[in-house]
Design a protein around this nucleic acid. Structure first.
Length: 243
DNA sequence: TCATTAACTGAGG
DNA sequence: CCTCAGTTAATGA
């Protein structure tokens, strides 16, 4: 990946939701980034760590998760290219959860010092990142509703709808289809149910002819039915800054 | 390794 | 009585 392209996914995303001028963009582009490749299921930072850098997800999917003392894992969020999943470590110095790769990932590490310098020099960049953090929190709120109140079918449909809307921003949705490289075990961990039940829910949606899920790809076959099942309103993603 | 299915169980409405 | 969901186990891709 050429140096120019490294931060492009981040810029693309920030630009859709925040007003950044040429100097802001230049400041982001000139951040020193150390690129590293990760295998699937590799921890990037763990609970208790004190990172000195943030990581920009450039390619692949990551999750944030916490585990209980008896070893059960809750997936807290799913991250896609252009996001900085551990942005909070810039100001909260000890990690309170794990960041783990889901797939093979390309991660760009940016030193806290460099990032802090940019946010001090370029207030609009600071605002854009702040806004990003607030949207992150809005997504967590929606996930609490998901795990706490929605039925199994609704939970799964909602997660899929959300991912699709977020992937659309970075042009990773082609028509009714997009890549969702998660096992049923992992989907279960995101929904707070066992993989066996995740399988039952998936089957329900597939047998109803609403959804297809094969080898990490989702196809939504019946848009209306799917949206109804998902109880989805994209407002909380705040994708349109004008609203 | 991951997905699928059945049989059984219990909670809760 | 019905639906949802966890456990266990067997089996297939």
């Amino acid at each position: 990946m050429n140096p120019e392209a490294i931060t492009e996914s981040l810029i693309k995303r920030l630009r859709t939701t925040a007003a950044l001028d040429d100097e802001d963009i230049q400041a982001i582009r000139s951040l020193p980034v150390l690129v590293r490749q990760y295998r699937p299921d590799q921890p990037v930072v763990r609970e208790g760590d004190r990172p000195s850098e943030c990581c920009l997800l450039m390619e692949g999917f990551c999750i944030r998760a916490k585990s209980t003392s008896d070893g059960r894992r809750q997936i807290l969020s799913i991250h896609i290219p252009g996001e900085i999943p551990d942005l909070q470590s810039l100001h909260l110095h000890v990690m309170d959860h794990d960041l783990v790769t889901l797939t093979e990932c390309t991660l760009g590490f940016i030193a806290h010092t460099a990032l802090r310098n940019v946010t001090r020099r370029r207030p609009s960049v600071a605002e854009a990142l702040w806004r990003d953090t607030l949207v992150d929190a809005a997504i967590f709120r929606e996930w609490i509703v998901n795990v706490g109140q929605r039925t199994g079918v609704s939970r799964l449909a909602h997660i899929i709808m959300e991912l699709r809307e977020r992937l659309r921003v970075i042009d990773k949705v082609s028509g009714p289809e997009f890549g969702l490289p998660m096992t049923q075990e992992q989907l279960g961990e995101a929904m707070g149910i066992t993989s066996i039940h995740a399988n039952r829910i998936l089957k329900q949606l597939q047998n109803a002819g609403v959804l297809k899920f094969q080898r990490g790809r989702v196809t939504i076959l019946d848009e209306t039915k799917f949206r109804d099942a998902a109880d989805f309103d994209k407002l909380y993603l705040h994708l349109d800054p004008a609203l």
